[in-house]
Structure formats: C-alpha cells, structure tokens
Amino acid sequence: MEKFKMAHTMIRVLNLEKSLAFYKEALGFEEVRRNDQPAGRFTLVYLNTGDPDGHQLEITYNYDQVVPYDLGTGYGHLALGVDDLEASHADHKAKGYNPTDLKGLGGDSKPRFYFMSDPDGYKIEIIRN
C-alpha cells in the first residue's frame, strides 16, 4: 500500500479576515498560500504553524455565505501541541479568547489540555507536548 501523509484539514468560515486574525494571533499560524477564485466565488487560504512540511489548515471562504455554518454533531476539534501549557493558557485568557480551565484526564492531577473556540465556533484543543 502507498504511504500517505496528512496534507490539510479544511474548515469553512463566515468572515475570512476575522478567522485569519484569530489563527495568526491566537495560535501562531502563518499563511503559506492563497487561491482566490472570483468566478467560483470562493477563496482558499492555507495556513500552518511554520513547519514547511507540516499539516496545513485550509480555510475556505465562500463569498455568498451570509449565515454561520452549521457545525453539526460530527465535528470534534482541532488539536495543537504546546510546550508550556500554563503560559499558553494565561496568554489566551489575557487576550480574551475565553479558554476553558486547564484539565487533566481521569485521575491525573497534572493539567494536560484546555479548549477554546475560533470565531466560527470550531473547537480547538491545546495540549501539552
């Protein structure tokens, strides 16, 4: 069997500039390429966290969408690892991103993760590396 590599994950957003600001400012993503398709009435923006060979987040902006997307019940979350979970949590809290409290798993007393949401309501889990 062919060896597969993760390429990207796509989400649809209502406000492109607001979403780009969130992913860049809150999570350190960088725009790596953009594909504007005026005839098709959409724009694709690819982001990653600075690793040129890393998994990308594709943000799709459809020009004619005027109501928020229904995220449904099947979507879970995006997960990003960070070395200093407590500092990241404090920074996100100070910047008004409304992260959940730090949490552990089961009987684990050491915090391992927290969640927050992007402007469209997509859940993002920040986990300790």
Rank of each mutant, 00 (worst) to 15 (best):
D36F: 03
V13S: 07
G74E: 14
R34C: 12
D53E: 15
G74M: 11
F42P: 04
A39L: 13
D70I: 09
L57V: 11
K18W: 12
R34H: 02
L16F: 05
H55W: 04
T43M: 04
R128V: 12
G76E: 14
D120P: 12
G104W: 08
K123H: 04
L16V: 02
V66S: 14
N15F: 10
T100Q: 03
K103H: 12
L16N: 01
A79Q: 11
G50A: 09
K123G: 05
P68N: 00
T9S: 14
L80P: 03
A87I: 09
G28P: 09
E125W: 06
P119V: 06
I127T: 14
D53A: 13
Y63M: 10
H92G: 09
M1W: 10
V67R: 14
M1L: 11
A7G: 10
L20N: 03
G50K: 07
K5A: 14
Y63D: 14
M6V: 11
E30A: 09
E25H: 08
K110Y: 09
I126E: 01
K3C: 04
N62Q: 13
P52A: 10
G76K: 13
G40V: 05
D91T: 13
T60Q: 06
R112Q: 15
R12D: 08
T49L: 11
L27K: 05
H8D: 02
Y46H: 06
Y75F: 15
G106I: 05
A39F: 07
Y75M: 13
D64Q: 09
L47G: 07
A90R: 14
T49D: 05
M6N: 02
Y69E: 11
S88H: 13
G72R: 05
T49H: 03
G40I: 00
G76F: 09
Y61C: 01
G81E: 12
L105K: 15
G107L: 05
G76V: 12
L14I: 01
G96I: 01
Y63G: 04
G74Q: 14
I124Q: 08
L20R: 01
D120C: 10
Y63K: 06
A26N: 04
G76I: 10
H55Q: 13
D84C: 13
E86P: 00
G96Q: 09
D64I: 07
T73M: 06
H89W: 15
T73A: 10
S109H: 14
G104V: 07
G76M: 12
N48I: 02
A87Y: 05
D51G: 04
Q56V: 07
M6G: 10
Y114K: 08
D118H: 02
I126K: 07
E86M: 01
R41I: 08
S19E: 00
Y69S: 06
K93Q: 15
A26C: 05
S19I: 02
T49F: 02
K110A: 12
D84E: 15
E30P: 05
Y122M: 01
P52F: 03
S19Q: 03
G40F: 03
V82M: 10
F29D: 08
T60L: 10
K103D: 10
F29Q: 06
D83C: 04
N35A: 08
L47M: 11
R112A: 13
N48Y: 07
T100L: 03
K95C: 00
Y23S: 03
R128L: 13
T73S: 08
F42N: 07
A90P: 03
R34L: 03
I126M: 11
G96L: 10
R12A: 12
V13L: 01
